[in-house]
Computed example of a mutant assay.
Amino acid sequence: MYLTSTQANATAAINVPTIPGIWLGYLLGASIFTLNFRISPQVSIFMLFPMLMDGFSQNFGFRESNNILRIITGILFGTGFASFMLAAIVYGI
């Protein structure tokens, strides 16, 4: 089977999903937490908003995201979420 030029161009433009960034953020947040460096709950919640704004603005067609932005917002989201959840579990926030 041969690829047409449009199929070859479509397969060349692969978008990286946000998921690897989120998992890197989870790992970073857990690592920070185990090193006794605490992120306040307010900052943790604030770290969730860039990915939410990125997702909503892309979903409603305001703009198109790129791979770098997805990784950065995913890392921020994962770090904030992991920090908040670990603090909630350990300290009962």
Rank of each mutant, 00 (worst) to 15 (best):
D54W: 02
M53N: 04
R63D: 10
L48D: 01
F84G: 03
L76G: 01
L48N: 02
F46Y: 12
L76M: 05
L76I: 00
A82V: 06
L48M: 09
T18H: 09
G25C: 03
F81T: 08
G29Q: 06
N36M: 04
N9T: 09
F81E: 11
A10M: 12
N67T: 13
P41H: 08
N59D: 09
A13I: 09
N9K: 12
L48E: 00
I19C: 10
I93E: 08
P41C: 04
Y2D: 14
V90Y: 15
G29H: 06
Q42W: 01
R63T: 13
T79I: 01
F81L: 15
I22D: 09
F56M: 05
R38Y: 07
Q58I: 05
A88D: 14
E64V: 03
I93T: 06
A30N: 12
F37P: 08
I14L: 10
N59K: 06
I22W: 05
F81R: 02
L24I: 15
P17S: 09
F77H: 02
D54K: 02
I75L: 04
F56N: 05
N66C: 06
I39F: 09
A88K: 09
G61V: 02
P20L: 07
P17R: 03
A8E: 15
G78H: 02
L86W: 11
T73A: 02
V16K: 07
N9Y: 11
T18D: 08
I14R: 07
T34G: 11
N36S: 10
G55W: 04
F33Q: 00
I89W: 12
I32T: 04
F46R: 05
I93Y: 08
F49A: 11
S57M: 07
L69W: 10
F62G: 04
Y26D: 10
N15Y: 12
F37E: 14
G74Q: 00
L24S: 13
N66D: 13
Y26C: 12
I22L: 14
I71A: 07
S31F: 13
I93A: 02
S83M: 09
I45C: 13
P41D: 02
I22R: 01
M1C: 02
L3G: 13
G78L: 03
T11P: 06
L3E: 14
I14A: 11
L35P: 00
A82P: 12
G29P: 06
A30S: 15
M51Q: 07
A10G: 07
